[in-house]
């Protein structure tokens, strides 16, 4: 019998390996199918569409090569849209990262009211942005709004914030900052709690006396990678600015707040110029993809830090 046993049972064993593969396939299969249907496929389609003159509902389409892109970069609206988006990102990112870091440091510097402050600063992250945009619109009302009423109390004449070409984009930036500070703050707080307390003790032993010394010798170097990471994800989120524009300014006045996603939305879903909107989408994708790759790189580096 022992000799008979020495022969393996390859067919039966192969069947068991097959079983594990089948199990994996049936477990991962639905997700994979949906991934192709809703992510990979559409991604390919959007790139292909950007080289066509397809209009939503049209029966046919033809290949136009880079015509959409040529038209786009010649178009004043698109150039304005790209410029506005970049300005928006360039303002919101440094402001909300700096304020988020400041809030995190100040809140963690003491113990009293810590939970209160954390909750208050985080509140705008949770609140439905579209509803808050409507509230902001009311607050920015030239005659009835809280902002101008308060300014009038101290003798300053306010602007018609959202209708004035000089202020509209910056006003939206302000709301963007207001909404992102809390998110950045909690990320920084997580980074702060990850700093081992012994490092501060070591720094104290080594002669770091003032708070600034401690910040420069321990906190900032330890927080560096987190900061880089927060900067990149805030940039990605800022690139996606849409809700406030759509509800408050519709890109106006005179394109002063036209941003990429809004251009994509109005071309694609108001004017149904799908091919052109796809080209705008591709430009948007290139920016976000570049930032995402930067983020992945940052994340990987941060792993090596730990």
């Amino acid at each position: 019998m022992a000799d008979a046993l020495a022969l393996p049972a390859p067919a039966a064993m192969r069947r068991r390996g097959f079983g594990e593969a089948m199990a994996a396939l049936s477990l991962a299969g639905p997700a994979m199918a949906l991934m192709v249907l809703f992510l990979v496929g559409p991604l390919v389609v959007v790139v292909l569409l950007s080289a066509t003159d397809y209009q939503l509902g049209a029966r046919s389409l033809s290949y136009v090569g880079l015509a959409n892109y040529a038209e786009m970069f010649a178009d004043r609206v698109f150039r304005k849209s790209l410029e506005n988006t970049l300005i928006y990102v360039a303002i919101v990112v440094p402001a909300s990262v700096a304020l988020g870091l400041g809030a995190a440091l100040l809140i963690e510097a003491g113990t009293s009211l810590r939970a209160f402050y954390r909750a208050v600063y985080f509140l705008p992250v949770m609140a439905t942005l579209i509803a808050m945009a409507i509230v902001w619109e009311f607050m920015l009302h030239p005659t009835l709004g809280l902002i101008n009423l308060a300014l009038r109390e101290i003798g300053v004449e306010g602007y018609n914030w959202l209708q004035d070409r000089r202020t509209a984009l910056f006003t939206l930036c302000g709301i963007g900052v207001w909404q992102s500070v809390g998110f950045n703050m909690v990320l920084f707080m997580a980074g702060l709690t990850a700093i081992p307390g012994e490092l501060y003790e070591a720094a104290a032993v080594d002669g770091a006396r003032t708070g600034l010394d401690r910040f420069r010798t321990v906190t900032w170097p330890m927080l560096g990678p987190v900061t880089l990471f927060v900067v990149v994800i805030t940039a990605i989120r800022s690139f996606q600015v849409f809700d406030t524009v759509q509800v408050m300014t519709k890109g106006g006045p005179n394109r002063a707040t036209e941003v990429l996603l809004y251009t994509m939305y109005s071309e694609g879903f108001s004017f149904f110029r799908t091919g052109y909107a796809a080209a705008v989408t591709v430009v948007f994708l290139v920016f976000v993809l570049a930032l995402s790759l930067l983020k992945t790189w940052v994340l990987n580096r941060r792993v090596h830090y730990a």
Binding site: F38, L39, G41, P42, L43, V45, V46, L49, I236, Q240, F242, L261, M264, G268, T274, A277, A278, T281, F284, L285, V288, L289, S292, L293, T296
Partner: peptide, 10 residues
């Protein structure tokens, strides 16, 4: 890496 805005049109 794909934001969901990108796949909206397709």
């Amino acid at each position: 890496l794909i934001p969901h805005h990108v796949v909206a049109i397709p």
